[in-house]
Design a protein around this nucleic acid. Sequence first.
RNA 1: CGGGGCGUGGCUCAGCCUGGUAGAGCACUCGGUUCGGGACCGAGGGGUCGGAGGUUCAAAUCCUCUCGCCCCGACCA
Length: 474
Amino acid sequence: MTEITPRSEDFSRWYTDVIRRAELADYSPVKGCMVIRPYGYAIWELIQQGLDRRIKATGHVNAYFPLLIPQGLLLKEADHVEGFAPQVAWVTKGGDEVLEEPLLVRPTSEAIIGTMYAKWIQSWRDLPVLINQWANIVRWEKVTRLFLRTTEFLWQEGHTAHETAEEAEAETLTILRLYKEFCETELAMPVLEGRKSESEKFAGADRTYSIEALMGDGRALQAGTSHNLGQNFARAFDIQFQARDKSLQYIWGTSWGVTTRLIGGIIMTHGDDSGLVFPPRVAPYQVVIVPIPRGDWRETVLPHARQIAADLRARDVRVFLDDRDAYTPGWKFAEWEMRGVPLRLEIGPKDIEKGQALLVRRDIREKIAAPREDLPGRIVDLLAAIQQNLFERALRFRADHTTEVSSYEELKQVLEGRPGFVVAPWCGSAECEASIKAETQATIRNLPLEDTAGGTCVRCGRPGIARAYFAKAY
RNA sequence: CGGGGCGUGGCUCAGCCUGGUAGAGCACUCGGUUCGGGACCGAGGGGUCGGAGGUUCAAAUCCUCUCGCCCCGACCA
């Protein structure tokens, strides 16, 4: 069996080892593209459910736009082209016919959706348009990494059109908060919400906001972005409406997305040397039942295990009954721990005698002898407790790995030693940002939403416009 | 795209330097005994050695080119 490199020894190897060993994903014959295997795809489905519910609850609807985009459409927004052109995959032939106008495989859908919005929007009465799409995207990345950066990936992308700048800004922030709440509630992954610097913002946006998580190795992961597009795409794609005052106006746009990268975030936030640790709310299996085979266990033990599984399913608990007899209980314990199942339930002759089952928590490895009566209720409570504990643990980790500094020497020193977020005043200049990046590899992850101006720039000593969160990032 | 490393049964690797009939452990299949922290015995199946070309009587091994993957940088969700 493939050994998993301990997380404490080599984080990168641990990450790829555990993904492949747990069968979340595998490399494919296509360069830069991975296969998301059933156990990994189940997590994505749970992410989709949780997110889709929230997106719809805030008034958005789903639609689907074409994968292929005519070259001419991409060219319409100058910053957008410049930002995405290096990453675009092209279709130049259909069958053996060379296309008059090449098609690009969408790296994002502003261009095609903007084009349609121009047709659909005539009046202020048509606004807002609040559409989301679940789709795949292709970006020709130089270097790929399972879940974190692959040539093709899955995501949701919201694209909205509004009557006023204020509405667009409110939408952008609504989604940012939605993402934060989702990550923290469902994934037990704390995130910092904030605004991106000019140099880090989306190609074609006025302002980009992001949520940033901290991984177990002290590097930051951008977990989601929400862009206020201003009227840039409206002008480029001629998305106009007649306003209440009869004047012709450009709409105010937003776009926002999160991707399958979130799965990488879950892995790197909660995993340990024994493998994966899944937050119950997105765990493909929340409980695995391991019956202890002794004697005629199929007659004596298995029926109890089946009954417990049925009771749990009735409470909407995702449960797997591992009754395979090719493996020993000890093997199954290790296997399901590696696969990150939050709660294991062991049941054998001894337990049946005592009218109990043995529960083992993945997060703290606590063993609990639980009486058979109201076992499902106890398990539901335990799953909630595990979810809570994982979030609090991650929050503590982030607090322990966030350092405020006031001098450049201090900033460099902290970044060399213990990784994590480093908070320091910044003057707002791209020059300081770039030189800090060049000298420390750390980038400004984002700037807090609340006004935090004050102090002097950690790099140049001019007045600070904000306390910036620096980190080495994925 | 620059620097480094690696491609040999499903996985991890040995063999390559010094060319001479492809190996190990794990995994897999079948039978049996087991099973409360990664069981054991017995019998099996499976590899044109990443690909192409070259040198040679003979290439996993030597030479050239090429493709892929991993790690570190620059770019990005």
